[in-house]
Design a protein around this nucleic acid. Structure first.
Lengths: 159, 159
DNA sequence: GTTGACTGGCTAATATGTTAGTGATTGAAT
DNA sequence: ATTCAATCACTAACATATTAGCCAGTCAAC
């Protein structure tokens, strides 16, 4: 027994590494009463002025059903405005409010400062390689990757 | 306006890269009626025989309050057993059931096979560097990293 | 003009993440 | 023996993740 698989759990490593990073930013973000997802959206919108929900989903890696709730709460908090497009009643435009513009202008520099602290601690070399490898992983996804054949479904509840 | 921060959102890159990987495993895992977290726990237990909840939390990167629910459901599904330690009534021992041992022995090889497929598509080189950089990020966390000074709290709800 | 495929945001149901706090238990210090 | 801090699993409340499906709006083909 106690046999290990041939490959270490790579997604789990990502999870851990991500958490090691994020724990240095989380206190800053929550200090301003924001969640991590809300900050992702604010940051994105501050760099793009206006976006549609599905674009925000794509960029911020938040699924559509989650986005509905997140945007509702942010609208409630007066962080964003939602406006239907007249020419296509299905689509919606999301924008920052003056309040959140102000918020980003105060929060943003702190985030950058923390990045510099981390870069110093980790070494600029490591950070550079990190960005590089991540980009290669994401780019590698361009070719279709086959999926292993799955056995017929089995009724595990019986056991 | 539209000014970008000096650093790209690194945690978000991790999120994306992780998803690019995980999407190749998720179908396999859910084919067996498991969630991603349940598989993390099963895999870990299969490599260690028995563990306490807080150890599983640490290894699998699941917070304690989530773990309570996850383990309850897994116990309900007859995937694990929970047993209080006699010598310390606070602590609990979690073990695999024969059913889940069987499940792991069928699922595990498929996971390994999928890793090989991915390694072939990404290039063994990239995978190797990936593991290496991740380990360095996690190891870099050994030294205490200072936190930027935060301004006094402000009542943003007023705006 | 109607049909039919499609799109985009949404709801519903369930599982997990996050933060704060509870209660029983243990072990060390009094 | 009693106090006290620490530990561990758990609960509560809320936010988000995940999967499935719904519904109105659009657009092209008929």
């Amino acid at each position: 027994m106690s046999r290990k698989l041939a490959y270490r759990n790579l997604p789990q490593l990502f999870l851990k590494a991500r958490e090691e990073l994020l724990c240095h930013f989380r206190p800053i973000i929550s200090h301003f009463g924001l969640t991590e997802q809300q900050w992702r959206i604010l940051r994105t919108l501050s760099e793009t002025e206006q976006l549609e929900p599905r674009e925000i989903c794509e960029i911020c890696h938040i699924l559509s059903p989650s986005m509905t709730g997140v945007l509702s709460r942010m609208e409630e908090m007066n962080l964003v405005t939602r406006e239907r497009m007249p020419e296509d009643q299905r689509r919606v435009i999301v924008r920052l409010t003056p309040k959140s513009e102000q918020l980003v202008s105060e929060l943003g520099p702190l985030i950058v400062e923390q990045y510099k602290v981390i870069e110093k601690a980790f070494g600029a070399e490591l950070i550079k390689e990190l960005y590089e490898v991540m980009d290669r992983v994401i780019a590698a996804e361009r070719g279709p990757i086959p999926r292993v054949a799955l056995p017929p479904k089995k009724d595990w509840s019986a056991l």
